[in-house]
Simulated assay, not measured.
Amino acid sequence: MDDSKADPAQRKAAERACESRRAVPPATSEQLAEARAFTACMRANGVPAFPDPDPQNARHETEGFDLKSSPEGRAALKKCGGEDKSKTAGKVGG
């Protein structure tokens, strides 16, 4: 299929819909340790229900967490390493 002609909005929607089916490489022990430290930091800094990372890929499933809309969430993100790590969901990949 030639997806170069696909509507960008439709393509992005399709990618989001299929995200959970995308193969994610297994996490290294360092990545998992970093993800666990990030979880501990988030919990210690105002987000006590922040989820554990997936032990297979070190990603945080943060669906349902709108960290940017609460002062506690924004403060915890800033203190714990910023937005990049929160996107490892389902990546919060990355």
Rank of each mutant, 00 (worst) to 15 (best):
D54R: 00
T88Q: 10
D2C: 07
A13D: 02
T62I: 09
T62S: 11
K85G: 00
F65E: 06
A40Y: 08
P71N: 08
K85V: 01
A23P: 04
H60M: 05
P53M: 07
E72Q: 15
A37V: 07
Q56D: 10
A23E: 10
R74Q: 15
K87P: 00
G64V: 15
P53S: 01
D3G: 03
K87C: 02
G73S: 05
C80S: 03
D2N: 14
N57K: 04
A76T: 07
T39F: 02
D2I: 05
G73E: 03
G73N: 09
F50S: 01
Q10S: 14
R22N: 11
V24K: 07
P26S: 07
N45P: 00
E19Q: 12
A49Q: 15
D52R: 15
A6H: 06
S70R: 10
A75V: 04
R11L: 14
A6M: 14
A9M: 14
A35P: 09
R16C: 01
G90R: 06
A40K: 13
G90V: 07
A14D: 08
R21N: 07
Q56W: 04
P53I: 05
D54E: 13
A89C: 10
A27K: 04
D54V: 14
E15G: 00
R22L: 13
P55C: 03
A6I: 07
S29D: 15
K78D: 12
A13C: 04
R21C: 09
H60V: 03
E19P: 00
A44F: 05
E63I: 15
R43Y: 02
E30N: 12
F65S: 10
T88I: 13
G64L: 12
A6C: 12
D2R: 12
P8W: 08
P53L: 01
K5A: 12
A35V: 06
F38Y: 14
T28M: 07
P48V: 11
N57C: 12
